[in-house]
Nucleic acid binder design. Structure first.
Lengths: 166, 166
DNA sequence: CAAAAATATGATACATCATATCATTCGTTG
DNA sequence: CAACGAATGATATGATGTATCATATTTTTG
C-alpha cells in the first residue's frame, strides 16, 4: 500500500502546483517520489543516487538541489538543517493549510516524525523570544531523541550522540 | 572592557576544567578566546583563520575541530547545527548549572542570543513530544528571526531568507 | 630519572554538502 | 517557426567535516 500512499501524494502535489501556477515537471515529480519512498531523510546526493536506481536515469546533483529548492518552496518537502537532509512533507495529502513543521528526529534509526506542537506552546515560545527583544520567523523546530521502537530496543541508549548519522 | 570579560571567562573556564579533571591547554584556551572575542558565530575554518591572526600561529582545521569538540564537551562552547558554526557559551562566568541552551539567531546580522526559555514551555514541548511516542534528549532549540536592532533598521525584512549566511 | 603509557596535536587525504556560472534543452506564445 | 523564458545539464570550485596515521607532549610508574 505504500505505492498507493505515494501516488496519492503525487497526485495531490500536482493539484497544488497547478493551482499555484507552477510546474511539477516529470523530474521534480520523480525527486518527490524518491523522497516519499524513503523511510529516512536523504541528502541531495543520496536523492540523486536513488533517482538513478529507481528511474534508470542519471541526474546531476546540481539539478537535485534545484528541484529540492522548488519542492521546499511549494511546501512539498523540508530540509532538516541539523542533518543537512531532506524529507517529503508528510502532509501533502492533507487539505488544510499547515503551520511551520516541527520535527522529531531519532538519532538511532534516523526516522523522522513531523508532528504538530500545540499552538499555545508555540505561542509561549514566541513570547519568550519576544521578551528577549527578538522577532521570530516561523520556527521550524528540530528535536533530537529516540523514537519509541529504538527506546525499547535499547532503553539505556543516550541519544544526542551524533547528529550526523553514518 | 571586552578584554576583561574575556579573561574572566577564561579564568572561570580553567577553574571548571581543573575541577572536571580535564586540561584546558594553551591552544584550547586560545580557541575559546577566539570564540569569545567574536560577536558572531564562527565556522571551524574561521576560527583557524582568526586564531592565526590573533596568535600569529597557524593551526590546522583538524585540530580546531578537536578543540571545539573538547569545548563542547566541557560546555564551554556550542555548535549551532542550523548554520554549522560555533559560539562560546555565554554563561561560562555564571556559577549555576545550566539547562540545555536555547538560541536566537538573527538572520540579518548573524548575532546570537543564548536565552532561557521558561521551564513550563520546555516542559510543554517535552509533553508534545512524548505524546508522539518520542523520547527527547536535551532539546537545543535554534530559533531564527531578527534581533531588535535589525528589525528597527529594516522593519519590512522577511527573516528566514537563508540560514547559511554569506 | 627513564621507559612506557596516555593524551594532545600535526599532517595528509578524502568524503560530503553546497553554490556559482555558463551552456543547452524544452515548452510556451506571438 | 522564431523568440523568449523556464528548466535542466555540465563543469568547476568552495565549504564543511572526518578518517587515519605520525609526531610531540604530558603523566605515570617502576
Amino acid at each position: 500500500m505504500a505505492k498507493t500512499h505515494i501516488s496519492r501524494a503525487i497526485d495531490k502535489a500536482e493539484d497544488r502546483c497547478g493551482q499555484a501556477g507552477v510546474k511539477l515537471t516529470a523530474k521534480r515529480k520523480n525527486v518527490l517520489a524518491t523522497l516519499l519512498s524513503s523511510a529516512v531523510p536523504l541528502s541531495a546526493y543520496e536523492v540523486a543516487e536513488l533517482y538513478r536506481q529507481s528511474f534508470d536515469e542519471v541526474i546531476p546533483p546540481m539539478s537535485v538541489y534545484r528541484m529540492l529548492d522548488f519542492l521546499q518552496e511549494e511546501n512539498l518537502a523540508h530540509k532538516l538543517s541539523s542533518t543537512n537532509k531532506y524529507i517529503a512533507c508528510s502532509h501533502i495529502a492533507c487539505d488544510h493549510q499547515h503551520e511551520t513543521p516541527q520535527f522529531l528526529i531519532c538519532d538511532r534509526c534516523h526516522r523522522v516524525s513531523e508532528i504538530a506542537i500545540r499552538n499555545e506552546t508555540i505561542q509561549a515560545l514566541r513570547d519568550s523570544v519576544q521578551a528577549a527583544g527578538f522577532f521570530l520567523s516561523s520556527p521550524q523546530l528540530e528535536l533530537h531523541g529516540l523514537c519509541g521502537s529504538c527506546k525499547m530496543e535499547d532503553p539505556g541508549a543516550r541519544p544526542r550522540a551524533g547528529q550526523r548519522p553514518a
